[in-house]
Design a protein around this nucleic acid. Sequence first.
DNA 1: CGAATCATTGAGGAATTTCAAGTGGTGTGG
DNA 2: CCACACCACTTGAAATTCCTCAATGATTCG
Lengths: 169, 169
Amino acid sequence: MVSGAVRTHKLLSDGRRQIGAFHLPGDVFGLEAGSAHRFCAEAISDATVRVAKRSAIVAMAARDIDLASELWTLTAEKLQHAEDHMLLLGRKNAEERVASFLLEMAGRASSELTVELPMSRQDIADYLGLTIETVSHTLTQLESKATIELPSSRRINLRNRGALQRLHA
Amino acid sequence: MVSGAVRTHKLLSDGRRQIGAFHLPGDVFGLEAGSAHRFCAEAISDATVRVAKRSAIVAMAARDIDLASELWTLTAEKLQHAEDHMLLLGRKNAEERVASFLLEMAGRASSELTVELPMSRQDIADYLGLTIETVSHTLTQLESKATIELPSSRRINLRNRGALQRLHA
DNA sequence: CGAATCATTGAGGAATTTCAAGTGGTGTGG
DNA sequence: CCACACCACTTGAAATTCCTCAATGATTCG
């Protein structure tokens, strides 16, 4: 990713959707060891993406041991994210999920206190395994506790990072 | 894994547990690109495990391109499993989760129609993001629909694989 | 046989989803 | 410049699924 944002997701036959990750500038995504992609990728905003042929990368890695090691590391980082996300999806309640999400986004933003969200509420819901209404309810609830501020729907200020951290556990 | 079964899990501070995977004979587990393990591993039954030093494997991979590629593939397979499991945890209901679990276990068993479970109901619940009671209720419900049979608590016969496959979707 | 552990069952409760309006901002056309 | 339509988001009540709690049943082990 050079600029903008991309989401990757899986679908069930009846349309239920699980977003696996959001990709922001600097990220590498869509790199698979096998020949078939297993996620659908869509741009969320205007985005610039640099594309490489898998076969070319694999061919280079066969001669360059450092590159081969880099490929492994990249996949291992994705695995780590997926493992953390399984814990969130399997065992956290709505408030904890939203708190974890806000901290994740804040960790990738330039400012640690203001988060500019590139994705819609529906995208957040499908990332956190919730409905759009529950995400909205929960954000409102966090605002009423003065944990966050919602100056606009796509911008969130973190007023009490400690409270979020406690929910993130 | 040589014999037996192992579970790997993560914990929240208050004890809630998410099992990431069950490891059966033939599996490789605990291989990380970084130096720190991120899961806790416990034997479920009597088990035989062959252990290798990570540093030794990484050193060998630096000289053997085929081994390096093998490491990448192993991690990528774990990632694929984690991605599928995120869809299950985020978007499937209890019946669908149990059906997917039974098919996963059947796919690794010698017989496709009888599943011998090495893990407890609590382990299944923590793998599927449910409670032990919901797992039990759901199994009973599948039995009453003649989708499965429960000759004993650790043995399950699949009577209607099509129905399970439909739930697995 | 009794104790301990694991699993099942069922009723009641709680969190999240579903359903149905309502709000607010944005863009378009008169 | 205002009216209107459209979209994303919010709000609140009702419904549902899953969880909690409590009791019972089954199996193993000393």
